[in-house]
């Protein structure tokens, strides 16, 4: 695992996603984004949002959806 911060954040998001992967998709997305909201500091969130904006390389599909959902909530258009 690289020590780049964004690599770690992507890894963490994917890891969280795996923990909820057994849930139905919609529920899983909600749980994952809720988890991120509860435990991630804002610069971590900013970085992952930015990463998603850049294409979200490395993020699992579920993680991607969850980050996107959270981003929508955090930065209402």
């Amino acid at each position: 695992m690289s020590h780049g911060t964004i690599d770690r954040l992507v890894y963490m998001a994917n890891q969280i996603s795996k923990a909820f992967a057994h849930d139905p998709e919609a529920k899983a997305v909600a749980e994952i984004s809720d988890h991120l909201k509860k435990f991630w500091e804002k610069r971590m969130l900013a970085q992952i949002f930015h990463h998603l904006d850049e294409g979200g390389e490395g993020l699992d599909p579920l993680a991607k959806q969850a980050v996107a959902a959270l981003q929508r909530k955090a930065q209402p258009a």
Binding site: H3, T5, R8, F39, E41, K42, R43, M44
Partner: peptide, 18 residues
Amino acid sequence: NEPGLRIPNMIDAATDGT
């Protein structure tokens, strides 16, 4: 009302300069 950094994230943020 927002969570702060955990130790490993503090260290990451330190290497990032924030």
